[in-house]
Nucleic acid binder design. Sequence first.
DNA 1: GTAGGAGTAAACACAG
DNA 2: CCTGTGTTTACTCCTA
Length: 681
Amino acid sequence: MMVESASETIRSAPAGQNGVGSISGQADGGGGAGAAGAGGGGAGRDPAAGADSNGEMSPAELLHFQQQQALQVARQLLLQQASGLSSPGNNDSKQSASAVQVPVSVAMMSPQMLTPQQMQQILSPPQLQALLQQQQALMLQQLQEYYKKQQEQLHLQLLTQQQAGKQQPKEALGNKQLAFQQQLLQMQQLQQQHLLNLQRQGLVSLQPSQASGPLQTLPQAAVCPTDLPQLWKGEGAPGQPAEDSVKQEGLDLTGSATTATSFAAPPKVSPPLSHHTLPNGQPTVLTPRRDSSSHEETPGSHPLYGHGECKWPGCETLCEDLGQFIKHLNTEHALDDRSTAQCRVQMQVVQQLEIQLAKESERLQAMMAHLHMRPSEPKPFSQPLNPVPGSSSFSKVTVSAADSFPDGLVHPPTSAAAPVTPLRPPGLSSASLHSGGPARRRSSDKFCSPISSELAQNHEFYKNADVRPPFTYASLIRQAILETPDRQLTLNEIYNWFTRMFAYFRRNTATWKNAVRHNLSLHKCFVRVENVKGAVWTVDEREYQKRRPPKMTGSPTLVKNMISGLSYGALNASYQAALAESSFPLLNSPGMLNPGSASSLLPLSHDEVGAPVEPLPSNGSSSPPRLSPSQYSHQVQVKEEPAEAEEDRRPGPPLGPPNPSTAGPPEDRDLEEELPGEELS
DNA sequence: GTAGGAGTAAACACAG
DNA sequence: CCTGTGTTTACTCCTA
């Protein structure tokens, strides 16, 4: 809930308003969040206060309080599992949730308050990855600190209780001890599971050598998803009857602790866990003398602290010094609903990005293979990545905490061994990645048809990933309309198409719907036609094609950079040119299927044949002397002919009666099946 | 530096 | 009155 409200505030700051907008948005978000944090945070993370006020609270209250905390954490875990661990494939069920959350985190995860798209587009994959890792690591750190806090609290309470118990009937003491022990165990379990979840999602790579500080106290790499059941089974899951837990845990705290320990690490290996035992027999396995700061190898700095302000996503609180910042961190960013949600959201973001990266990597591989190229730098691209978000594959793409954490600096993968896999998103072909601004510089426009191929290719991706499609509203609207048999849609149908096709458009409805309407009204290419069923919108291809000659978007410089990043030398001039011009999508997309391409040039007979036919001429004209449009189109089309021919025809009958026979783009099938109106908003 | 495309926000009108 | 639909204007950002 809290998350949503927070997201709402941030959402109100449109992605487009990079400067003022996002800032104010952030401020709002921060403010709101801050307020929420202050209010809810008090309840959420005030365990410390709870501990402090030990003397004032009755044991029962304390217990209740602790239980609530445990429940809260458990709830978060469940939520996380439900939303974070589900594969993209079944995202639909949680789209509303993720759609709402992701953007928030994305927005927050950028230190510079960049919008998600900006982040994606501005940062190079390695940077992006590194940044993500850093963010994740930080979040993790927070969580871990919180866990430790709670554990210590529990210990404290136990101690307190024991002391108090000296003057109490033994029976009562025993019960209370039991309760606390249960709590303790629960906390341990929750902590472990939580981290397990994180690990499963590739957020944490619990490599012994990398696990620093808090991580060491957590289940070592030995923990695998399959351990989960055991954990719950063998250690009295929260859901189990208390008796069971009690039975299992008994009064033997050490035993319990051992259980936890053994769970945490392979019996034999028994890493250097600080498995202390308090005088009272309390295990402290999970409370390794507050070395939470062990991350901070550089005293005076903190990954979340920079330029005098808190870098926590969405928070820009000014802190004079590190001490103040730490204080702020502990008070404002403890593990509460919000922080947890942010973390969870972050995971999803990471997941999506990883999927994207993986896919794009494959694409690149294929491209290079096709061109008989060989990555000059075998590192990132040569790493076969399983795009399938399957938990297993994902956990492989884990974040090397050590890589991005220790010094709080981002360490772009520099060696082939780098666990990071800076790859590119699939749907976000470079165009979207590099094209500046959040929503600006859509590639589609230049390649109106590629949009369909892009969509066809990454249909699933866009459908599930909360990533803004790299297409302009106009091109999207056009696409939506053209995809229908009769080439006409009501406004609401257009809306539905948007929400159906893009997870991104399942949120912020007011904004993008307004934009859609705005575009419909603004562009002459969209014609409103009174129809039986009311007003419908159609596309005037001529007008559409007439629009300003597509400029060379896709951020040439970035494209260039990317190219240079590869085995540039291997690229021949024309290929480079093509790359630079097309900004990728064309190359690997099933087709440059553009109205301007060969086939379309003939029958289409656009009056603009020589004019800025979106895809083609644009390419040729906007770029240096290289392939003539025809050459280019031909070259690229050669193998894509079929797909292209299919789509090329679309623009053909401009405004004319729909031609269902030809209007059968790949996506159509898929789309038609879908029930319109699953709109979430 | 400027022009134009694009995205966003907002105000307004109108119809159901 | 509310909501959805359309239109329009203003502003900002970005690229050529």
